[in-house]
Design a protein around this nucleic acid. Structure first.
Lengths: 347, 347
DNA sequence: CTGTTAGCGCTTTCAT
DNA sequence: ATGAAAGCGCTAACAG
């Protein structure tokens, strides 16, 4: 038996001197492929050999070289997740759901961010595909034509998250932004408000906020209520921007009764500014948001918002990806993650 | 010239039919290795060939197979970042700084989370090393002995972030938690408070919060002031927990004058609960936090806190990593990212 | 169930 | 400055 130590031989080339599958094979007295099988598809190896191999693996401290395996099998068990920004909590929460679900299944998440730039998205995806990932998860349905084409012909699972639409590359998990915007608008109308403004930041980049506005606008139009919009082009959606928007709204449109913010960061900022100014919400002016950030339920008054299950969206996207990877099913390629109007004190 | 199309020949094996470096080489009429050099070390190829190659790359739409390159060079230009949790904003901000800096330099971030479990960290790192990453960034200085040993003998850059200490594996970027805790304690004493409690959650897992408490405790001891601690073992650091801790503190220690929270999430929750209860801060009770979350400056009263540049910590860690990878310098292997006492209205 | 063989696509090594 | 040859460590393909 060549059971024992010293299982290092060749290394003609450069070789990092790590324990290889061949070392394990020699130690266990089998062929390399059998070790491979024992590790990847244990049922295809007899119990006896499997045990011998496991033992050799343990005693040598063998750790598979996933790069070599990835090259041979043309699959790296990685899923790039491409989002516009890592400073927006929403994306983080989705990523969290994705990461947690995929890691459990032995897939790793590669992080990519585009800063809302479709050119960067295109080149990022190009280089990401160079890693032979098992699938790709990216944000939104709008991409460079080149991105869509490349991904289309790529032949592996692709999921577009966040927004929902008819024309996706492969699979789609998200919310209907038009419906979300309409939902809050209806709520505000139902509360009896007639002078309503939609407020946001950077909506030229974040077109999903614009979709929500469009949903909002249509509802007001239908109700024959005048539609007002106020947005600051180059600001992020921070508490500070929310405060500024709030002050600007008060100053320039003193007769407004309700403010529909593009997201909870802004809405929370507005709420905090209202508190500071002693403006009573909703008596003097009502405030509604979007997202369902936990902060909203702890502020006084509590924030009315449209809640989207962001973590869950990530989990569902990851599950869909896994289902597809394991060929379990050709599964639904489109999933509406839904939303919920959370009526609290601020309206 | 074999300049034109049809540059697909063999594929004896499985082959994903992607354009390979060989296709480019044929199209440009050079050897594969020259294409490799033109792409990776352009100065080592004559301008003439370089141009011809660039053209072939563009016209064929060649995208390098990073896995093959990674196997050959034993380096994947990836940096795993391992954190305890993706639901804690602090880590997210650090990751953001890391990701942004590394992506600019052409390195990808692999995300890993351990849920504060050193066993999971150990096995996660094992498999992450299987990807032949260029370096590793992980959280904290406490690891399984096996993790430390493996990383030590690994021979590539390793950075431990968040906390600062004497005994790191390779490089260390973080803050001195003891000093941070002491800093707030001194501030509270200087404000004249004598009955002070330290409040936190899950500090058995997050030992860095415990280090801050220890710094706090020593200061009080020195000042001969009694030291009180209140913590809830199995709760996350949420606004809700902060509110509960606040109520519990009021109920069980009605004579407390100041509350030192383990982080701003808790402190902000407490502040919001105080507002809801009509408890005046800091007149009836003072509140201090840790982190410098932006929320703190928008609440009323504004939160006094110890601010840590989290995004910047990520950026610095990434820069240190890059410096090491490019061998620019053997650079300082330990970086104190510092902190700042931000005195606002709540104390 | 196990083994042999032949690459995956690139880069290192060593020549020229 | 360019090229030929030889693998990196693993798995797909095909036998037995």
């Amino acid at each position: 038996m060549n059971q024992n130590s010293g299982a290092r031989g060749r290394r003609r080339h450069r070789g990092t001197d790590r324990v290889t599958i061949q070392d394990v094979a020699s130690a266990a007295g089998v062929a390399a492929i059998t070790v491979s099988r024992a590790l990847n598809t244990p049922d295809r190896v007899s119990a006896k050999l499997r045990e011998r191999i496991d033992q050799a693996v343990a005693s040598l401290g063998y750790v598979p070289n996933l790069v070599a395996g990835g090259l041979a099998s043309a699959e790296m068990r990685m899923i790039p997740v491409v989002v516009p920004s890592l400073s927006i909590l929403t994306f983080i929460e989705v990523i969290h759901g994705i990461q947690q679900t995929l890691e459990e299944a032995g897939y790793q998440v590669l992080l990519g961010s585009t800063d809302f730039d479709l050119d960067r998205e295109a080149s990022l995806i190009d280089s990401l595909l160079g890693y032979s990932p098992s699938g790709v998860i990216l944000t939104g349905l709008r991409h460079h034509e080149r991105t869509a084409r490349r991904l289309n012909s790529w032949g592996r699972p692709v999921i577009e998250i966040m927004e929902l639409g008819d024309d996706c590359i492969d699979m789609n998990v998200g919310v209907d932004n038009y419906a979300v915007g309409a939902c809050m608008a209806k709520h505000l109308l139902a509360r009896g408000f007639q002078r309503i403004a939609y407020l946001g930041t950077g909506m030229d980049r974040d077109y999903r906020a614009m979709q929500r506005f469009e949903g909002h606008r249509r509802v007001l139009e239908e109700a024959k209520v005048e539609c007002d919009i106020l947005f600051r082009r180059d600001e992020p959606s921070s508490y500070a921007s929310g405060r500024r928007l709030f002050l600007e709204a008060l100053a320039t449109r003193p007769d407004l009764q309700a403010l529909h913010f593009a997201n909870d960061n802004l809405a929370a900022g507005a709420l905090m500014e209202a508190n500071r100014q002693g403006v009573r919400v909703p008596e003097e002016i009502a405030i509604g948001g979007y997202l369902g950030l936990s902060l909203g339920e702890h502020l006084t008054p509590q924030l009315t918002t449209v809640t989207v299950p962001r973590f869950e969206m990530g989990v569902q996207a990851a599950k869909l990806m896994l289902a597809r990877l394991e060929c379990r099913e050709q599964s639904a390629s489109r999933m509406d993650i839904g939303y919920e109007l959370t009526v609290r004190e601020s309206t």
